[in-house]
Structures are given as structure tokens and as C-alpha cells.
Write a protein that binds this DNA or RNA. Structure first.
Lengths: 243, 243
DNA sequence: CGAACACTTGATAAAAGTCAAACGACGTGG
DNA sequence: CCACGTCGTTTGACTTTTATCAAGTGTTCG
């Protein structure tokens, strides 16, 4: 059976049958290498493809008329990208590789056939979609109602916990590999202010940095400052149809 | 066949078979009247129910430790509420009725059975979930990267277009039925500042008000100010499995 | 080596928040 | 039926937060 990044991710939550795994692996039959900074999808493009991200990092974002950018989500290996194009003709967001990456594009009709044949996978994707929605609402509350420092703390914790889902080795430090400008564009701040907040948190002993690697020194206090809740702990897939 | 608010909404996008309509109607077998201000679901409650909103308005929100509130979404009749509880044991958000309302609660296992029996409905729900996600990202960009005035404009347009999906009569005015504080809590502003923006937009001839009813006088300019895109126009459900 | 890029820091400006008070509408109970 | 209380809106004075601008300091990579 072909390896599948996506199946591997999903099977962390719930056991998959071999048939399901094989079907999911078919989505990743066409890996494509992408250079850092390359555009994978442009806003308003007519889109018929979705992607599984196999390696590297990708972001989705929009550019407003005044030139400012809002990063909507940072994707990690195993993530499913571009579900918006199942329902809209034109892409509501752009996709750019944040690092050299490998993405596996597949036609949206391939996804449809998958959902028809494997109702359990369909339900699982529905659930993942709902989880992503909750993740969005968490960030919405962060942007709408918390201070700059709280947003930075929450953002770091979110990246940390998402990376930890797939990488067992992470205990208290991780490579963020985002510029301070990119962090700012994710949480609605300028790079200058992000810098001030990071610096302040470093001085307070909340985090430390060495060449791009971030260490979270006081998780408890960071969670408190960021009003952060780790949602991954509460996931319950008992709801899914039985295999 | 029993009437179903939800089926009616979905069939605006795509034709449903009678069997599908009947199945959807079963979700609404237990209508429950709710008084304005009543709590339907509390954050962190163990939840096993989802809802279809039949009449009135409901909001989902979170309260941060400092007491401030972020409204996550305002729901209108025909909306499907609480999909987060399919995947989380404890509700990540609270639900309160903004007006007297009628909601139809159903067990989350009833949803699962529906998805198993009607794969097309499953796909449709997946799509609706993706549409809601895009709606969230639009608001994220609004909160993260636009001015107070832009946020108010975008918010009004969003409510306007969402109400128009189900109410043919709306041409340029609508009953918002939200306090300025609620608007502020939706878009990350204080009620005082919302008031100033609304007042300013009124003086500039962008909108007008009379006892709670809002008239959008210059849609073009409002869309421009709010960097607003009406997503409803671009929906394409050709992707769905054939009936 | 040098150009490009990211980070850092200070001075100043703009946007939005806070506090406080008054106004108006509405509904309810005496 | 009117007085009063509650709730939402409006307005002004002042404060805080964050953005903007500008100039410097690394760092990396061709």
C-alpha cells in the first residue's frame, strides 16, 4: 500500500480500514515540489484542485486593496488544503509555500468519488472541517478581544500544539520558521509590534529564542496570557460511523 | 411531508429528493420555544445535541476571562447550529437567543445516521461547513486588517446578504435587531465606537435608520469601504453527487 | 563582498478604548 | 394612566494601545 500523509494523520484520531487507506493514498499520487515563496493558487483563480500537504509549510492568505495581507491559516504536513474550492468556482484565498514544500494536488471530483464510496471518510472530513472552524473562531476571539501580547502568546501555543500532533519529538521547543511580519499578518499586528511583544515575553522569561527556534519556558503562564485552550485534548470521534 | 426549515434552505442550492427532504424534516421533529436572552447551550457543557434554527435569531459567543465577549456568529432561520459538538465533548461556545426563537434540537447520533443513509446530504453538509469556514476567514481579515468603519460596513453587508438568501422581500433595508454593543462584540469594537461609526456613515449618506431598521443607501460604496465580497453569488454545487 | 532580508529600537501619530453623563424609548406596576 | 426603572443610544474629554516612520544592526546567501 502506498504511504499516505493524510491517511496517517487521520488514523491518529480513528482507525482506518485498509481500503480506506488505499483510497486516501490515491489522493496523493501526484506529488509536486514547490519552491519557497511560490504561488500554488491565486485568489480569484478558477480552481478545480485540492491539495494534501506532504512536506514543508504553506499559508493561505488574502491581500486587501490597500496592500495589507491577512494570513488565514498556516498549514503543516498532513493537512488538507483548499476545501473552499469544493463550493466556490473562484478561490477566495491565495496559497503560497512558506518553505520548500511538497503538495499533492488532486481534482475535486476525485474527492467527491471518495466521499461517495467511503461514507466514513466523508464523515471524518466533515468533522475535520468542523474542527478547523472552531480553530478559526478561537483566532477570531483572539483578534477581536485580546491584546497584542495575548495574541502572540496564543499564536505560538497554537503552532506548538498543532506541530505536536504529528511530531512526537517536540516537548517544549519548535522551529516556527515564520518571519515576524508573517506572524503579524496572521494575528492582525505590524511586524514592529510583534517584535516588541516577543522581546518583552523573552525578557519576562516566558519564551526564549535561538536562531529561529522558539522555546516555550512557561506554558501555564503563556496559556493564561493568551487565553488559550488546547482543543486537541477534547476531540471525541466516537460519533463516527462504525468501520 | 412535514415542513422543514433546513431542507427548504438547502434546496435553494440544489434539488433534494423527497426521501432526503423527509429525512431532513425528522431533524426538526422537536421544536422548542426559547425566550429572548435564554441560554441554549453553555460553554464547556457536555453536549450531545445540535440544532436547526426555525424562527428568530441566535448567537454563538465566548466570554474571555476579563469579561469581554466575542460573538462568533449570528444565526438566522434555516441555519444549522452547533456542528462543533460533533467532534468535541464539551461545547467550545455558548448559544443564546437574541430574540424569541424556535429551535429544533436533535441528537448528534441522528445526524450521523442521516449522513450514513444519505451520502448526498453528507456532502452537502460538508460544503455548507466549508462555506461557513470561508465566512469566518472573511471576518478574520476584517478584524485583523481593516478599520472600524470598514468592519461596520462589512458586517452590515454580511447580515444583509445572509438575510436576503431566505427573504425575497428585502431590497435595500432590513431589521438588524442587534444592539450596538452586540455589533461591537461581533467585530471587535466597543459599543461607543460602533456608535460613532454608524453615525458617521449615516451623515455621509451611506445608510439611514428608523426605529431599528437599517437602509443601505449606497451598496457600491459600502462594499468598497468594507472590502466586502458577496460569496453567495459564486456558489457552485455542480460538484455534488448526482441525486 | 555586498545585497537582500529580517530584526531591533526610538520618536511620533493615529485609531480606538475608557469613563462619565445625559437622553430617549419602552414597558410595567402602582 | 402616569411615574419610574431599565436598557440602549449619543456625546465629550481624556487615555491607552498600536501603527507609522525612520534609521540602524545583524545574518545569510549568491
Amino acid at each position: 500500500m502506498a504511504t499516505s500523509c493524510f491517511a496517517e494523520r487521520l488514523s491518529r484520531h480513528v482507525p482506518l480500514s485498509d481500503a480506506e487507506k488505499t483510497a486516501l493514498a490515491r489522493l496523493e499520487e501526484n506529488p509536486r515540489k514547490i519552491k519557497r515563496g511560490a504561488m500554488i493558487q491565486r485568489v480569484n483563480d478558477t480552481v478545480t484542485e485540492l491539495f494534501v500537504l506532504r512536506e514543508g509549510r504553506v499559508m493561505s492568505f488574502v491581500i486587501l486593496p490597500d496592500g495589507s495581507r491577512q494570513i488565514l491559516r498556516v498549514y503543516f504536513p498532513g493537512d488538507f488544503i483548499g476545501s473552499a474550492s469544493t463550493i466556490y468556482n473562484r478561490s477566495p484565498e491565495s496559497l503560497v509555500a512558506l518553505s520548500d514544500a511538497v503538495v499533492c494536488p488532486f481534482d475535486k471530483h476525485a474527492l467527491r468519488r471518495l466521499l461517495e464510496e467511503y461514507p466514513r471518510v466523508a464523515a471524518l472530513l466533515f468533522l475535520m472541517s468542523n474542527a478547523e472552524r472552531v480553530s478559526m473562531t478561537d483566532r477570531l476571539a483572539s483578534l477581536g478581544r485580546t491584546s497584542a501580547k495575548a495574541r502572540v502568546a496564543a499564536f505560538l501555543l497554537d503552532m506548538f500544539d498543532r506541530l505536536r500532533v504529528t511530531d512526537e519529538n517536540i516537548t517544549d521547543s519548535f522551529d516556527l520558521r515564520l518571519t515576524q511580519e508573517e506572524i503579524g499578518d496572521s494575528i492582525g499586528l505590524t511586524s514592529v509590534h510583534v517584535n516588541r511583544m516577543i522581546r518583552q515575553m523573552e525578557q519576562e522569561g516566558l519564551i526564549s529564542r535561538s536562531n529561529g527556534r522558539i522555546t516555550l519556558l512557561d506554558l501555564r503562564r503563556l496559556e493564561d496570557i493568551g487565553h488559550y485552550t488546547n482543543r486537541h485534548k477534547d476531540i471525541d470521534l466516537e460519533w463516527l460511523p462504525v468501520g
